[in-house]
């Protein structure tokens, strides 16, 4: 009996692509495709779902990671592969924490999705070592420290150093120091430029 696959993807094109892949392999059956991650759990409740291909940023801002967490709690047997094109490093970490089975970067990963699906169904957990390399100014996302990425995430909201510091539990001057470091690494001139570019590249998403 083929595995029932649920596709959670709000973009038409990648969704079509996943459907083509799922339908091309007789070991999988396409159960349904939806845009909003919040609904995924309903499909698990009302029928058998063996595997979910889950995007992170889905319709109406609903988070695929939140949905995956709820599903893993209620249906630990259901395998979940997070598929995303955003190199946001914290997602990788969070996916591991909530027990997502595999993680696949849409454009950057060499291994085809079908191979990842096959290994995941065989019980393997497949995670890329790190997010795909994305150039930002003179640096890449791999050049940023954990703390810098945290600050970058807060920077996107347009908050002041004091507000960011308060949220992360550090002083405003420390925040300023890290921001300055990032500006030097990337060769950018303003924090606004840094935040805008980082967000649009998906290096940091709040």
């Amino acid at each position: 009996m083929p595995y029932q696959v649920l596709i959670v993807e709000d973009q038409e094109m990648p969704r079509q692509l996943f459907e083509i892949f799922v339908k091309s392999d007789p070991r999988y059956a396409h159960a349904a495709s939806i845009s909003n991650a919040e609904l995924a759990i309903d499909f698990c409740r009302h029928g058998r779902i063996d595997l979910i291909l889950m995007d992170v940023m889905t319709e109406l801002g609903s988070s695929g990671l939140d949905a995956a967490e709820a599903i893993k709690k209620e249906f630990p047997e259901t395998r979940i592969i997070i598929v995303t094109s955003m190199p946001e490093a914290s997602w990788l970490k969070r996916a591991r924490e909530i027990g997502v089975d595999s993680f696949w970067y849409k454009e950057a990963q060499k291994e085809p999705i079908l191979a990842v699906m096959e290994r995941t169904m065989a019980g393997e957990r497949i995670y890329p070592d790190e997010p795909p390399l994305v150039r930002i100014g003179c640096a890449s996302n791999h050049d940023f420290s954990q703390r810098e990425l945290e600050i970058l995430r807060e920077l996107i909201a347009g908050d002041s150093n004091t507000e960011i510091g308060k949220r992360l539990g550090i002083s405003a001057s420390t925040v300023k120091y890290h921001v300055q470091n990032m500006l030097e690494k990337t060769g950018m001139h303003t924090r606004t430029e840094l935040a805008a570019v980082a967000r649009s590249l998906g290096i940091a998403i709040k």
Binding site: Q11, P14, L17, I156, G158, R199
Partner: peptide
């Protein structure tokens, strides 16, 4: 003013990113 721009940018960014994703997906297709 910059913070305001940033906030406004933050509001439209998901659309922009979505557009980029769509474009990328179109390329894939």
């Amino acid at each position: 003013r910059l913070a305001e721009n940033m906030r406004a940018y933050g509001e439209t960014i998901s659309d922009t990113v979505r557009q980029q994703e769509i474009l990328q997906a179109k390329i894939n297709i």
